[in-house]
Design a protein around this nucleic acid. Sequence first.
DNA 1: GATCCTCGAGTTCA
DNA 2: CTCGAGGATC
Length: 832
Amino acid sequence: MSPSPAQRAEVLRRQIDEAGKAYYDRDEQLIPDAEYDRLVRELEALEQAHPELVNADSPTQRVGGKAASRFAEVRHAVPMLSLGNAFSDEEVQDFVRRISERLRRDTVRFSAEPKLDGLAISLRYESGRFVQGATRGDGTMGEDVSANLRQIKVIPHTLQGSGWPQVLEVRGEVYMARADFEAYNADARLHEGKVLANPRNAAAGSLRQLDPKMSARRKLSFYAYGIGEVRGGELPPTHSATLAQLNEWGFPVSELCQVVEGGEGLLAYYRDIGERRDGLAFDIDGVVYKLDDRAGQEQMGFVSRAPRWAIAHKFPAQEQTTTVEAIEIQIGRTGAATPVARLHPVAVAGVIVSNATLHNADQIERLDVRVGDTVIVRRAGDVIPEVVSVIADRRPAGTSPWRMPTECPVCGSEIVREEGAAAWRCSGELSCPAQRKEAIAHFASRRAMDIDGLGDRFIDLLVETEVIRSPADLYTLTIDDFLLVKFVLDSERESIDSDLRAIIATDANERTRDLFGKESDVKSAFDPVNLAGDAWRAYVFGLLRQSGATFDWPKKHARKWAENLRDAINASRTPTLERLIFALGIQHVGESTAKALATWFGDLELIRHLPWPLFKRVPDIGGEVARSLGHFFEQPGNQEAIDALLQVGQVRISDAHPPSAKLRDGLDFAQLLVEAEIPGITRLRAEKLVAMLPDAASVLDAEPVQLVAAGLPNEVALGVADWLDHDGHGPMLLKADEYRRTLLERAPEATSQSEGPLEGQTVVLTGTLAQMSRDEAKERLEALGAKVAGSVSKKTSFVVAGTEAGSKLTRATELGIDVWDEDRLVAFLAAH
DNA sequence: GATCCTCGAGTTCA
DNA sequence: CTCGAGGATC
C-alpha cells in the first residue's frame, strides 16, 4: 500500500530538514542540489493539493514561503567605502608617491588583489555565527540579503578555528564563476528561461531574488577581501596577514592576492594578472592595491568617501553600458537591410564605440532593443562591437518595440523578406542609390578590380551627383570630372573658375541663373550643405560636365591626385576573368565561386550566356547558386552593363581559355534534360525520351501525346509540357543544348594534368606571416595543387601558423592536425 | 534527412 | 570574426 499524503509529507519534511541542517550548520551536503530541489518541489505540490497538511514547521514555509515584499534596510556600522580609480601607469605611480611622501618611507609594501566583477557585500558574525549579510547599497545603508547569502556554499555559517573577535564583519565580493554562468544560461535557453547578460548581472540579480530558492539555484561564489566592524578581539596588523587569518576562519580568499613592493611591483602585478585574465574562472575588471600595514592606513586617512591608502587599477572595460540613441537600417550591396544601433559614444576596450550591429530583425526581437534603452555593449574577443543585452530596469516609459521599416530609407522601395530567410531586403535593386554605391564600391575593391584610391566617400559622391551610375561609367571619367566632384568635397576652395561662371550664367534654365547667376551666390550654391542629396545637384553637375569646362581652381596636389586615380582606373582595365566575375557582385558568387567559374568555363562570353542549369556542372555550385547566376545574366540591365564595360570601358580579360574538358564528362542531351531539373525527369526517362526525340527542338515541338509515346507516364508528360511552356523554360532548354554543343566543341580532350605535390591536400593559413602575405602564400600553395581553406576541420591536411596565430591553431592542435611554421612553408615552396 | 564543411556577406575603428 | 545558409556526403 502506498503511503498517505500525510505520511509522505512527513517523510519529505524530515529528509529536507536533515539535509538543510547538515548544510547550514555543518557545511555538509547530504544529497545533491538537484535531489534537494526535487524533494522540495514534491512537498510543495503535495501541500498545494492538500492545504490541510501545511503547518508552520514545514520547510516550504521557512525556506521560501511567503517571501518578504522587499528587503529590510541595514545600516553599516563601518561604512562600505568606494575606491579611487587609476587607469594609467602614471596614476599608479602618483598613488605610490603620495603614500611614500606622507609616510616618509622609501619602500612601501602593498597587498595587491584581483578586483572581481561582482557585488560587494558585508557579512556579520557574532560569537562566531553568521547573523546578517547585507549589500553595499549606498555605502552607509544596504539591504539585508542574509537568506540569499546563506545559500552560498562557500560562505561559512559558523567560523572555524578560534580566536575570532566577538563581533566580526567580513567584506568581500559575491560573484558567479564563468562556468556556472554558462551552465545557467545554457539551462535557461533550454527551458526558455531568462538568459542573463553577464556574470556580474547574474550575481546581482540572484542576490536580489526575493525568493531564496531562486537564489539557491544559481551557483554563486564569494571571496573575502576586507573587514568592517570588529569588536571584542584583535586582527593581525597587516592586510595580508588579515586575509590569511580570514582564510583560516573559513573564508575563501583569492589565491591571486600577493604582497608587492613599490610602484614597479604594482605595475608588474597588474600586467601579470592582465595576461592571466582570460584564463581565470571568473571575471575581473582590474586589480586593487592596498597599503599593507594598518598603522600606515590610519595615518593616510580618507578623502571624502574613499581611502587614501587604496586604489583600484582598472583594465580597459570590455563591456560597457550606454544608451541607444537610434536604430537605423543600412542597405548593403545585395539590398540586405541591416539594423544598426546608434549609441551614445562610450569607451569599450580602448576604443570609442558609437555604432553596433544588431545583425537582423530577429536579433532585435530576441533582445527587444528599443530606442532609448540602456544596453550592454561588448567587444567580445575580437573587434566588432555588439549589443549584448538590454537593461530592463532602465527602460524609459513610452517605448515601443522596434519594427523593420516598410520602405527603404534611401530609395523608398518596399522592404521585403524572402520566405524563410532571416534577411529583409530593399527591393529597389540597382535603382536604389545605396545598392548602386555598394555595387560600385565592391567592383572597385581590392579583391575585385583593385582600383586603388577610389574610396567609399568619393564613390558616394560620384553616385549622388549621378556622375556615374554603373561601374562601366568609371572608365569614362576624365580628370576634370574627378576635380569637379572633389571640388564639392573640399571645404577650403577659394574661387571658382570664370569659365564655370560663364557657363552657369548662360545656361538657358532659369533656375540655374537664379541660383548661380549672381556671383555672390556662387559659393554658397556650391556649399555641400546646399547641394546635399538633391536631384538638382545632379542636374548642375550634368550641365557642368557637358560644357567641357576646365578648372583652374584645383591646387597642384589635387591634379596629381586625379591623375593617380585615372591611372589606377586605367590599370584595372585588364582583369583576370575571376576578378571580373567576382566584381560583378552576383549574389552567392564570392571569390571562390568566381574562381571556379573562371577556371571551368574560361571565357566570359560562355558564362554570360550560359543557361543556368549548366552551372551546376561545376563542383560546389548547386541549384541555388546556379539560379542566382541565371537570374543575374537574365537581367537586360546587367548584360548591358557588361557590354558597356567591354566596349565603352575597354575592359579586356587577360586570361580567357577554353573550357575545362571535365565539363563534357557525361554531358549528352539526355543528361542535360536531367540537369535542367524538369519535374519528373530521371536519367532513365530522359534516355527513353531522347531515343525518340533526339534534340532540343524536337522535344520542344512535341505534343504531350508524343511524350507519352516516348515512354513517359501520362502525368510526367503533362508536367514536362507544362514546364516547357512556363517561365521561358522552353527557349532556355534550346539554348542549353546549343551551349552543350559549344562546350563539347571548344573543350579540349581530357588530358592528364601534371599533378602538383600538394594535389588533393587542404591547407589552412593562420596568423601573420613575416616573409610573404597571406594572399601570396595562398597563391603559391594553390599553384602546387593545394586547396586553401578558411577554417580548420577534420579534412584539413595541415595548418601553416605564423605569429599571433589564434583560434585556428588551437583547433588544429585539438584535432591533432599537423602544424607547419613559416620556415617549413618557405622551405617547402623553395623546394618545389 | 541529418551532419559536416565551406563560402558569402556583413561589420568597427584608427 | 561570426552567422547563416548552400553544397556535399553519408
